[in-house]
């Protein structure tokens, strides 16, 4: 464990909590892509199947449970409790265009052809594109509430810190997980455009982020 990975995991947890609390307290999921949250719940489900078969550490187990619980709790807020405020009209990204290539690739490019490993690979590839419906929804509505942009900022920060974690682990331990790194780089690139808008608009105190 290193400071980059630990702070990355904390940023990831903060992002998920920010989103959950925003929906819970505002009793609305307007502007939130339910599809992205469904994809993230699928990412955690397919990645953490080893929760009961492989014990890494208390921290690892606890974080996996917390991520799973919060992911499904957020999905249930969006699709059940506050479904009247769910803007399915704007949340129109065709997720099948993500799921099919990701599933196909996880069968082609993986470390070992076992069910658990293919599902883990699927979750890694899926995570790199899971935010696209949310980013697409923001471009479609042309705006995002500032709390939503803070959620995206912490998600992007988590991914950026994981890149630093991999540089550190390669330098310190010679560790290099090619599938995770390539997928992680692709995922972080998707946040670059958002980061630009975030730093030039939201942090300038303009509150909402409105797209040009």
């Amino acid at each position: 464990m290193n400071i980059f990975r630990l702070s990355g995991d904390v940023c990831h947890l903060v992002a998920i909590i920010i989103l959950f609390l925003k929906i819970w307290r505002s009793k609305s999921c307007a502007g939130i892509s339910g599809k992205s949250q469904l994809l993230f719940a699928l990412v955690f489900t397919t990645r953490y199947l080893d929760l009961f078969t492989a014990f890494i550490s208390i921290y690892n187990t606890v974080m996996k449970v917390v991520f799973l619980v919060l992911a499904y709790a957020t999905v249930s807020l969006i699709y059940f409790r506050f479904r009247k405020s769910y803007d399915s009209e704007s949340d129109s990204f065709r997720v099948e265009f993500l799921l099919v290539p990701v599933a196909g690739l996880s069968f082609l490019e993986n470390y070992s052809f076992t069910p658990l490993e293919i599902l883990w690979t699927f979750s890694i590839y899926l995570e790199s594109v899971a935010i696209l419906p949310q980013l697409f929804m923001i471009t479609k509505t042309g705006e995002a509430e500032s709390i939503t942009t803070h959620y995206l900022f912490f998600l992007g920060l988590y991914r950026t810190l994981y890149l630093a974690n991999w540089v550190w682990r390669y330098h310190e331990e010679g560790f290099f997980d090619q599938i995770a790194v390539v997928s992680g780089v692709v995922q972080t690139i998707f946040y670059c455009d958002f980061f630009y808008l975030y730093f030039t608009r939201v942090l300038r105190g303009s509150g909402k982020m409105t797209l040009p």
């Binding site: 990831h12 990645r47 890494i56 996996k64 070992s112 658990l116 490993e117 883990w120 997980d177 995770a180």
Partner: peptide, 10 residues
Amino acid sequence: ADEEVAHDEL
């Protein structure tokens, strides 16, 4: 090879 790969990252 179909060995189990241990993934220690979240």
